[in-house]
Design a binder for these strands. Structure first.
Length: 806
DNA sequence: TATACGGGCATTTTT
DNA sequence: TGCCCGTATA
């Protein structure tokens, strides 16, 4: 038995690649996970690589878990064959369990498989105390990991308290985003300041600097630091760098197209020990194996950069004796989808200019046509989807609820669909949205736990000091924090000074002393108890549980159930992982995503965003909300690069489907505040060849952003009408006739980009984009003091304002 | 110190 | 529309 059996030529070349760099360009559904798992098994089984020397990076925790599972299965099959001369399936279950446990103990336990964030958090737990920032900032192994909310609050505090600025003018959220962006590109505060002369950057650098200091004071890191600090550490400390370089001989990176600069820096540091990659030549016992598909790069908003993938061969190629073609393998055979679905995806993605040429070749039959439906509004759309689901379920016995996925651009779209599913009693789960670990009660308990191991963590301390209520109010807290900042010591040190606390007097002093004793007594148990026991202790001793019991409402009961679930999560963590200390459990909680919790075997319809669907596949897929301004999103319309990213996102959506694909769009959608926005079909729909579609083919033939040119518009309409008349079965000629009437000069005014308009409610505004043409035309208008609005010029209460200059 | 109320604002996408 | 945050009031 060999791990190369059952692979195609390209897959074999990838898996059998031993040392040196290799880029695997792997199209959707081309078996890249197979290539990755087989490669690891092959390295261990054939080349005798020590599992301890392998580092594999996946995009989600769930993918990591699955990879480990599949790998175990492969290895256990080999073991059964070698040792017992028997195939795995024929062994009895207890025997199977035994072998599996052996594989776990001897091999998979030692593998480092995980996301960039979890792997490098792990690395930091070993070596962070060897790091000292240029500013002298330091952290310890007990560091806390702050989530997005914690980070944002910290930035807010800096803006309002330290710098005394108006948070409306200097939005913490935007500043936090800018800092994150800088970190993901490997920039430090001085780099940001130098980036340009403007005051904007000066302020950003100032906030960034203070933020970093504040994190260090709390002995805390944000998500981005989990990547940036290791880069700094590996650059700074040669011993540390050499250690990890020698330790990890074989690196594998999945979803390489969504790697950012900082992550790439980490890979390079580990692989070449700090040498220039092009000049690096000690490849005899090591490899770097990256797998990705530039067409599926969908995370540039968090600084992912697919040009890293496109430049990989160039970066690593020069000094190799082998030809550059030996540093790339393309997997283009698709085993997932019908040829109809693939053709649609291929046609769509060809509209992008920045790509590595690659086409997915079908290995399956053509299957059914893609069904396209226009609906009146988002409620009708939801009903349509659920209606289709019910028909499918009742006519095809082989389809289970779990085979069906509904994908959409924004989380908010799930609501209407959920309501319809509930109405028809169809089981479903929503992936994404509110994470389990983001629930209030969970965050509270986790904050207690963080405080136990990291006393410097004032953010966590402040979160729980009066939860449940201990009579410690705002004024008292202000006094304590003032004292801490004046003395430049952690808040905890102020609280532990009982004399100082007593001087505060009365009620609040009592509360603080009580809190102090609670934390101290729990802290004494950290060494001797495991995470689940500690979680339970915190829930009980803090008074959190009794408060919920007293409350007795449905909501309180729900919270109690969630807390129970948290204890279960800790138990599960202890079972599954090698290191079961509290620090690691908290790290895994901080880095878990909602998608990680999704159970693959539950028989429920899955609802999620296009982004969350990456890497998954379903026999039946619905893509909802295929409308201009929603998907592609409004913000991408003015920027060609973002539009291409939206198109890639659409490509990802289409290629999730194995058998059947349904696309829906609404003619009107209630966005927020109950305002109904007219909606026109997505540009992407027009990029799918009509012969692959069935149903309400859009009239617009090709909506694109352009300056509104009358001549072009007219010729366009003529062509559309012609098509329409040639194809009466699909949508009847009456539309065309009606349109001709509506399109009389005088009724349909011409609107162009740059025109000034007056709106009854919003006031004066300027047209920034026009979409579509004729009576299907929509315009985007930017009004003073508010975001852009998409309006139907025939319905909206607007008047043109004559331009004085003309 | 805790709560109730109302104004203002929000929707991309996530480790 | 519903959620979050700040302010008024017991």
């Amino acid at each position: 038995m060999s791990f190369l059996a059952g692979l195609n030529d390209a897959q074999t070349r990838a898996v059998d690649h031993h040392t040196g760099p290799l880029l695997v360009v792997a199209g959707a559904g081309s078996g890249k996970t197979k290539a990755l798992t087989h490669r690891i098994a092959h390295l261990i089984g054939k080349y005798g690589t020590d599992p301890h020397q392998i580092l594999a990076v996946t995009f989600t925790n769930k993918a990591a878990r699955e990879m480990k599972d599949r790998l175990e299965l492969l290895l256990v099959q080999l073991l059964a064959q070698k040792q017992l001369g028997q195939s795995w399936n024929t062994l009895n279950p207890s025997h199977q369990g035994q072998l599996r446990n052996r594989i776990y103990q001897e091999i998979t336990k030692d593998l480092w498989i995980g996301t960039f964030h979890s792997l490098f958090a792990r690395l930091l737990r070993y070596d962070i105390d060897k790091f000292k920032d240029e500013e002298g900032l330091k952290w310890t192994r007990q560091f806390s990991i702050y989530d997005e909310t914690d980070s944002k609050n910290l930035v807010k505090e800096i803006v309002t308290q330290e710098l005394q600025l108006d948070p409306k003018r200097f939005e913490p959220k935007k500043l936090r985003w800018a800092i994150s962006n800088a970190k993901n590109q490997g920039l430090l505060p001085p780099d940001v300041e130098q980036a340009s002369e403007g005051n904007q950057n000066k302020l950003l650098a100032e906030v960034y600097q203070r933020y970093r200091k504040a994190l260090a004071a709390n002995n805390a890191l944000d998500f981005d630091d989990l990547l940036l600090l290791p880069v700094q550490l590996l650059k700074q400390n040669q011993d540390v760098r050499s250690y990890w370089h020698n330790r990890f001989k074989h690196l594998l990176v999945d979803e390489f197209q969504d790697t950012n600069r900082t992550q790439y820096e980490l890979i390079k540091l580990l692989v070449t020990n700090g040498d220039e990659p092009r000049k690096y030549s000690n490849w005899e016992d090591r490899s770097v194996f990256v797998v990705g598909d530039a067409d599926q790069s969908i995370y540039s908003f968090r600084a992912a950069d697919f040009t890293i993938l496109m430049g990989f061969q160039d970066d690593f190629g020069e000094n190799l004796q082998k030809k550059a073609s030996n540093t790339m393998v393309k997997l283009e055979e698709n085993y997932r989808s019908t040829s109809t679905i693939l053709e649609a995806a291929n046609s769509l993605i060809e509209n992008n200019t920045e790509r590595i040429d690659k086409i997915l070749r079908a290995t399956r039959g053509s299957g059914e046509l893609i069904k396209l439906t226009r609906c009146d509004d988002e409620i009708a759309e939801a009903e349509e989807i659920v209606h289709r689901i019910r028909i499918l379920k009742s006519t095809s016995l082989e389809i289970n609820w779990g085979d069906i996925a509904v994908l959409y651009r924004t989380n908010a779209q799930s609501r209407a669909i959920e309501e319809s599913l509930v109405r028809w009693s169809i089981p479903y789960i929503v992936v994404g949205g509110l994470r389990f670990y983001d629930r209030r009660e969970i965050k509270d308990i986790l904050a207690y736990l963080r405080l136990l191991i990291n006393p410097a963590d004032s953010v966590s301390l402040l979160r729980v000091i009066n939860v449940p209520k201990r009579g410690i109010g705002k004024t008292t807290i202000q006094r304590l924090t003032d004292a801490a900042s004046q003395l430049a010591i952690p808040l905890w040190d102020v609280i532990s000074d009982s004399d100082a606390v007593r001087s505060l007097g009365g009620r609040s002093a009592k509360g603080i002393l009580q809190f102090y004793e609670l934390i101290e007594s729990l802290r004494n148990k950290v060494e001797t108890s495991n995470p689940s026991e500690l979680t339970q202790l915190v829930i009980e001793k803090s008074g959190y549980l009794s408060e919920l019991i007293t409350e007795g409402t449905d909501e309180a009961d729900e919270r109690r159930r969630n807390l129970q679930e948290l204890i279960n999560a800790a138990l599960q963590y202890e079972e599954e992982s090698e290191a079961s200390d509290l620090e690691s459990f908290l790290a895994s909680a901080a880095l878990a995503s909602d998608a990680d919790n999704k159970q693959t075997n539950s028989d429920k319809v899955t609802l999620m965003t296009f982004h969350s669907s990456k890497g998954l596949e379903f026999p039946v897929v619905f893509l909802a909300g295929m409308e201009q301004g929603l998907f592609p999103s409004y913000r991408s319309l003015s920027n060609p690069a973002s539009l291409e990213e939206e198109r890639r996102l659409c490509y990802v959506g289409l290629t999730r489907a194995k058998e059947r694909l349904f696309l829906t769009h609404a003619s009107e959608r209630r966005m927020w505040g109950g305002i109904r926005e007219p909606a026109i079909p997505s540009l992407f729909l027009s990029e799918i060849p009509t012969e692959l579609l069935q149903g309400d083919i859009p009239h617009t033939g090709g909506i694109s952003i352009r300056r509104n040119n009358n001549l072009e518009r007219l010729t366009r309409i003529d062509r559309e009408e012609q098509e329409e008349l040639n194809n009466p079965t699909l949508r009847g000629a009456s539309n065309a006739i009606r349109r001709r009437h509506n399109n009389r000069p005088g009724i349909s005014k011409s609107w162009s980009v740059g025109d000034q308009v007056m709106h009854v409610n919003f006031g004066k505004g300027e047209i920034t984009h026009t979409f579509g043409s004729g009576n299907k035309m929509t315009i985007a208008v930017k009004f003073n003091g508010m975001g852009p609005k998409i309006l139907d010029p025939r319905l909206a209460p607007i008047k043109p304002i004559e331009n004085e200059n003309q």
